[in-house]
Structure formats: C-alpha cells, structure tokens
Design a protein around this nucleic acid. Structure first.
Lengths: 164, 164
DNA sequence: ATCATATCGTTCGGAACCTAACGATTTCAA
DNA sequence: TTGAAATCGTTAGGTTCCGAACGATATGAT
C-alpha cells in the first residue's frame, strides 16, 4: 500500500522562507512537525471524543493520571499532568463538578490534599481511553512497527537532551 | 559520544500500567512522547525566551506567520496559526497593545480585516526567531542528520493519515 | 430592486492557562 | 519553646482557548 510522506503544503511554504534565514532547517522541520501533530491530535480528540463527556484535553489528562496511578497529591498530579498547580486547582474543580474526581484531606499534613478518581470517573475512563488509543493507532497506522519504535526513540532522546 | 535513548521514568511507569489494558503500546509510546516533547519545548520557550517580550506561545506563532508570509486576513491567519477565529481576535488585540501588529481594513470588502506585523514586531522577530531556532537545535542536538530526517518524515506521514 | 443565504470578524460566556502572592501549616535550628 | 523559613493549595488578575451567536457586509437568485 502506498503512503504519503510528502512535505505538507504548510511545511513546504514555511521551509522555503526560513531557509533564506540561515537557520538549522533539520531542527526546524523536526520540531515544527511535532507541534503540528500534537495540535492536530489534541483538536481531533477534543472535538470527536472528549466533548461527549464535557472534558477538556487537560481534564482528560488529569483523569488519566489518576486512573493509571491512583490517588495523588495536588502538586504531584500537576507535575505528572504537565500543568501548573493553580491550573490544576481549576481543572480538579471542573472534574469534581462533573463527578469524575474528589478531593481528600491528607491524614497527617493539613497543607496537603489528595485527589482521586470517583467510580464515575473510572467508568468514564474505561470508555474513553480505548477510544483515545484508537486515535493513537489511527494516527500511526501508516508507520511500520520499526518506524514507530524509531520515532518514540528519537523523541526520548530529545526529552533527555532537554533535561540536561 | 554516548547519548540517552532510555525510556523516561514517566513513560516507563505509564507503559507498565497501560500494557495491562491490552492497548496498542507502540501507538501509545509514539503519541504520548509527541505530547511530552511539545509541552517541554513550549514551556521552556515561554519561560526562557518569550517572557522577555511579553509574548505567549500563540502570540509568537501568529507574529511568526506574519513575519514569514506578510500581511494576512484574519481567517487565514487563524488557520495558519492553528487557533480559532475568536482566539485570533484576542491574540491580535494583545499583539496590537504590544505594538507588534496592526489591523487594516480590506479595500474592497467591509467584512474583512488584514493583520500585519509592525516594524517593531519585525524587529522583535529578528531577535526572537534565531533564538527559538537555537532551542530547536538544542532539542535535536543528540539526533543524527538521518534520525532528524526520519523523525520529520514519520511525523509527515502521521499528518497525512489524519487528513484522510 | 429585493430578499434569502453566506461569510467575516467580533462578542459572549465559560473553562484553561500562567505567575505572583496569600493564608494555613509544617519543619527545623537555636 | 519560639520563630524563621519552607511548603502546600488557593486566590487574584490577566491572557488564551473555544463554540455559538451576533451585526455588518457581500453574493446571487428571482
């Protein structure tokens, strides 16, 4: 089966312009396409899946972290979800209103709060996550297994480069 | 020079959990790492570069589109920037307040508005973009030229898969 | 000329997003 | 025991983000 690896029109036009500026075009191509894919997946998922459950992408992310790891304290939950503590406060408020999550005070430390998924939240996640994984599978369907592994590997290398 | 392609701790823990759910782990690894890299680059860039100019990431993106292609109508500018028309209205308002962009009415059609970068905006972009490209280069520094090309290629294939 | 339909950009309303600062609480050195 | 410093989660204030709806304008059929 043939598949399309051609440069998208948006990338081609931008590339022509930025090439004239004497920049690292390989780096530009890699990073700009990461943003394009991330935006496309996020927008697609919000529109076709998450809106059914009144969830934002970050709401979904937070609920997913709770579903995978169980109850977490606010600061850790914010870090694992990639959002700030103040944003987490607002997102958890929304999840509480939807009945998907609940706060629980820490037994020993009055400053801390646990957040946990409710049964309703876990039930919603059992519905949502396989469908989200279908999106992940659809998005990568034209890549071979080796290509998927190489892609994930290159991204991990980039993450480690940012950590040093 | 050795380099680190190991699975990050965040990915490893998540992977163990989601493997138990019988999902497409290759797709999960690829897509979840795309989000991790996109988030890391965006946060890093906002903190270390864009805050100097009071720019959000989307403000930067919109200004970049104007810088590369010249004045654009609002609806096209929104589409090229990956945001909605209503968001663009707000972001352009902020760019106007910063003196980086200006609106101009369409000569023939009272409904339409052109947006253009100002001299101040262009000057700021000449400062910002090379430094943003340094971030792009830093993030990809541990990838070979072949690996960068394979990464960009795999991402393009994914973009095309989403378009069909 | 008129009217229905479509398009444009803005406004509305509400959620997400951030940093800085705050009050409450904990920790630890003296 | 006391008080300084640190940590936690929330609040404040402002921007970004969206879809729906609106007023203004353009288009095209009649």
């Amino acid at each position: 089966m043939t598949r399309d690896a051609s440069v998208t029109r948006a990338e081609r036009e931008a590339r022509e312009r930025v090439e004239a500026l004497g920049i690292d075009v390989g780096a530009y191509a890699a990073v700009s396409n990461i943003f394009r894919v991330a935006n496309a997946v996020r927008n697609h998922t919000e529109r076709t899946l998450l809106s059914e459950f009144n969830l934002s992408f970050s709401g979904f992310t937070v609920l997913w972290v709770l579903w995978v790891w169980g109850p977490k304290e606010s600061h850790a939950l914010a870090r694992e979800s990639g959002i700030s503590k103040s944003t987490l406060t607002g997102v958890v408020k929304t999840l509480e209103r939807l009945g998907f999550a609940a706060r629980k005070p820490h037994a020993m430390d009055g400053r801390r709060v646990f957040v946990q998924a409710t049964r309703k939240g876990i039930s919603a996640m059992r519905n949502i996550f396989p469908r989200f994984n279908d999106v992940e599978a659809m998005v990568t369907r034209d890549l071979s297994i080796g290509e998927k592994e190489n892609l994930a590997r290159a991204l991990r290398i980039m993450l480690h480069s940012m950590e040093s």
